[in-house]
Simulated assay, not measured.
Amino acid sequence: MNQLFKVFILTNMLLWLSFNIEAQTDQSQIQKRLTLGLNSGISNQAILFLENSDYQYKNQFYRVEFRFPITNKKNWNFEMVAAPSYYITEYRLQNKHYIKPEDNENYVAEREKYTQERILKEYALQISLLWRYNISKKLSAYSLIGSGPMLIDKESERQAKGFNFSNYGGFGVMYQVSNIFLDLRGSIRHASNLQLREPNNGYDMMSVEIGVSMFL
């Protein structure tokens, strides 16, 4: 998963560099107007290359997005996104042998505890960089990547509760109807804590979400 994020970051850095060279030649066209949006979606780790038979992780989430355009070119736009997010997650250990006798002298009780489905609540503030390509006057495609602090209210056998980081990247399309923007997005997310506490094996998930936003 970490390698995937490195490739994603490198690709987007190259796109940003080529765009920034062009944008510097015409800063007079910049228009700054805040956009407020509400997105909702579902996530699951049991999809494609993210699937891990050790655990079940699926959730429903809600996200408020504040988008602030940094540049406003004819074809490419560059934006900053701040997104407070709330995740309600169904979590369960599926492979009880993930908890080994040498890891914990109470491993039998730990296996019993974590193989029961649990509800985890996650609160995140994700700050992302978004670059958009205008396909037409109303339709655009975009990519974004970001990270931010997150709190998880319960621990699991693979991740400590409390302070973590939510790393996020995705692609989407947006269609404008008058002053309203309709949003469809696919994304991947990785949650971990940079080894601040143990355990720190992290959660990986793939999401699909829809949203609506408008100019303020």
Rank of each mutant, 00 (worst) to 15 (best):
115 T>M: 15
148 G>C: 08
76 W>C: 02
46 A>M: 09
121 K>R: 11
32 K>P: 05
162 G>N: 06
120 L>P: 08
59 N>T: 09
95 N>G: 07
14 L>N: 10
165 F>H: 10
67 R>F: 00
184 L>P: 00
89 T>C: 01
179 N>P: 00
1 M>W: 11
58 K>P: 03
86 Y>S: 09
160 A>M: 12
167 N>P: 12
176 Q>P: 02
204 D>H: 07
90 E>M: 03
148 G>T: 13
57 Y>H: 10
117 E>Y: 01
151 L>E: 08
43 S>V: 03
176 Q>V: 13
202 G>P: 14
31 Q>A: 08
167 N>E: 04
191 A>Q: 03
190 H>F: 05
84 P>N: 10
49 F>V: 15
5 F>Q: 02
96 K>F: 03
108 V>G: 02
164 N>Q: 13
86 Y>Q: 10
74 K>D: 15
190 H>V: 12
193 N>F: 01
65 E>S: 14
170 G>F: 03
26 D>V: 11
144 L>D: 14
88 I>T: 14
198 E>Y: 06
137 K>N: 12
172 G>E: 05
83 A>L: 04
98 Y>C: 05
18 S>F: 06
200 N>P: 09
28 S>K: 08
35 T>A: 02
24 Q>Y: 05
94 Q>R: 12
52 N>D: 15
80 M>F: 10
151 L>N: 05
21 I>S: 05
102 E>Q: 01
2 N>K: 14
